[in-house]
């Protein structure tokens, strides 16, 4: 999944970017995934801690699904960045989808808190 280690340039290898920009961007996606994991874990804790209600359970399941969706989005972007060659720019649709997951998570959180 990660880019091949430097050394003998394999087929399709690009000249190494001295600023390691794709790598840094990949790690930024990983950190963001980690943040969303923390939020999802807190959501699950809220569901399990409070007396289970129908609304709470639905919101909790939704939080899990949103976390998975975010994970998939991040994974696809990480794959694109690690593929080699000049990395394609992030598309607005991809960015909007990631933000949509975050907003929906907040909405679920509001439903759980109330």
């Amino acid at each position: 999944m990660d880019a091949p280690a430097d050394g003998a340039p394999g087929p399709g290898a690009r000249p190494r970017d001295p600023g390691l920009q794709p790598e840094r961007t990949r790690l930024a996606w990983r950190r963001t995934t980690l943040s969303s994991t923390v939020a999802a874990v807190l959501a699950v804790r809220t569901v399990l801690h409070d007396a289970p209600t129908a609304t709470g359970t639905v919101a909790g399941v939704l939080c899990g699904a949103l976390w998975l969706a975010f994970l998939t989005l991040a994974h696809r972007r990480i794959r694109a960045l690690a593929a080699g060659g000049t990395p394609p720019a992030l598309t607005p649709r991809h960015a909007a989808a990631a933000v949509l997951c975050t907003v929906a998570l907040a909405v679920c959180a509001a439903a759980l808190v109330l």
């Binding site: 970017d17 600023g19 990395p87 992030l90 998570l105 959180a109 759980l112």
Partner: peptide
């Protein structure tokens, strides 16, 4: 492309801030 990637990282940093605020909301409640 490096400028675009830098912009993307800034976007992700803001997204993490948003996720931290949401986590904070859960934390206050819990």
């Amino acid at each position: 492309y490096r400028f675009s990637l830098a912009n993307e990282r800034t976007f992700l940093a803001w997204l993490r801030t948003a996720l931290a605020l949401i986590g904070g909301g859960f934390a206050v409640d819990q």
